[in-house]
Design a protein around this nucleic acid. Structure first.
Lengths: 255, 255
DNA sequence: ATGCATAATTATGAATTCAAAACCCACCGG
DNA sequence: CCGGTGGGTTTTGAATTCATAATTATGCAT
């Protein structure tokens, strides 16, 4: 994400540029360049086109994007606060590297925050809101075969739940933490069976919410994350450091 | 704050400059200017020298600080991600302002996160770490008369607890949320009696931690925040229940 | 005088330029 | 043979310049 008010991510992924040059619909509606650049950088980082731990070559990226260093550097600073990038004084920016241990810690926070949100939704959401959520869940049920689509809808479900819980700081924090998770390849590499399991957990969660059972919703969400983490532990290496650069967290916004 | 690795806040508040010009010890050790600028901006915002909701005049600040717009604008973008500042496209930066409702929501998150940290500390911290924490608590006991010092030590205690709980994302998030709280003047304006109450709660929390009672530690921290919020409700706007916090699902899990 | 169109001013967004630190590598001395 | 030293290159950090959108002010017509 970027920031609450001026968020409105969108459209980078949608635009298909040859290999360089940022969209310049010219004139109208334009939003600051550094936001587009930040979004594009995120995409490249998640896609591993910029390798974790690797140095980020400003000049090269400027050439690739066809822009000057100013907006690029602004974007890098934004990503640094988000934790996707690490700044080293006088030696530039590096793609953050997230250790396995970090993944566990982030899962813990996600569980905490999302479980709380689930409880709040079960307790306070309107019937309409719950219906919207259910619609997303049902979409998920149908996409069990398509990995990519499943992941996307899964995230949409979680973010929608957060949105309904109405706490923009929590929303922001969770969004940031989820971005950090995407840095770690192991995260999305669950084994085959995990998708089915995950779906079952969603089903149970959805039921608890519909039943207005806040406590159960919270517990089920906690379990959902606990299971996710367990599944992500594809290969349990003990001490493993691997974290060349690891580092920071996210923020919050305001009105 | 800014970012974990290259954090090292410090020293702005300490430097007493006439009215302009940033420190330039020249040459050695320097860290990027925008970080100093970001820190100074935070100070000015917290001190209400820049009023909440107000427009931030880049030119004027550049003149005040004796720098160019580039590092100032970089700093503003950092603060925007942190939530202290809001960017409006093509019309500059504004100091964020935090509604009373926002305060309640942030308290809720702080309660969740810090309660979890407290539980983890009770369960896993070493004797030495707990001793350090206790030292801070005892310092707090002695400072009950000095408001300013009390606030400072109070924050130090909370942050130390977080540090011991060893989850840098949580640390970062809490630090950011606490910064947002500082935007709202009502936060620190508790009434006289609150300090004593707060101290008592700390005492109970400390006891639970020493007793290695994770569940109690979590519960006490939740209550600590619930009470803090209640006290911060200097002026109870109409119906508003704000019982939001009281019924949060008290998670206390450990591993 | 009031309201709208248009010109002048101001501030933002981005590119470019400039200064200085870090890096690289060859060379030199032990 | 190795480590340190010096110069040249690269890259970062920050100031400055340039272009354009937004705001304010001005003038004209009704």
């Amino acid at each position: 994400m970027v920031s609450p008010l001026w968020s409105a991510d969108s459209e980078w992924n949608a635009i298909a540029v040859p290999a360089a040059e940022l969209s310049s619909p010219v004139g109208l509606n334009r939003r600051p360049l550094y936001q587009d650049v930040a979004e594009r950088l995120r995409q490249q980082i998640f896609a591993r086109e910029l390798e974790p731990g690797g140095w980020i070559d400003e000049m090269k990226l400027c050439a690739d994007y066809g822009i000057s260093r100013t907006p690029l550097r602004e974007a890098l600073k934004v990503l640094a606060v988000e934790g996707l990038v690490t700044m080293k004084a006088r030696r530039g920016a590096y793609v953050s590297d997230v250790s396995r241990d970090d993944v566990a810690k982030v899962y813990r926070l996600l569980a905490l925050l999302e479980a709380d949100a689930a409880a709040q939704v079960a307790a306070d959401a309107t019937a309409e809101e719950i219906a919207q959520l259910k619609a997303l869940h049902q979409k998920l049920e149908k996409q069990i075969r398509q990995r990519e689509a499943f992941f996307a809808t899964n995230e949409a479900f979680h973010m929608q739940l957060l949105a309904i819980a109405r706490n923009r700081w929590r929303e922001q924090i969770v969004a940031d933490l989820r971005k950090v998770m995407k840095l770690n390849r192991h995260h999305s590499l669950f084994k085959k069976g995990r998708l089915v399991e995950s779906l079952e957990e969603h089903r149970a969660l959805m039921a608890a919410i519909e039943a207005r059972d806040a406590k159960a919703a919270s517990r089920l969400m906690h379990e959902h994350f606990a299971n996710g983490l367990a599944a992500a532990s594809w290969l349990r290496v003990k001490g493993e450091s691997l974290g060349v650069l690891s580092r920071s967290p996210g923020k919050a916004r305001s009105a």
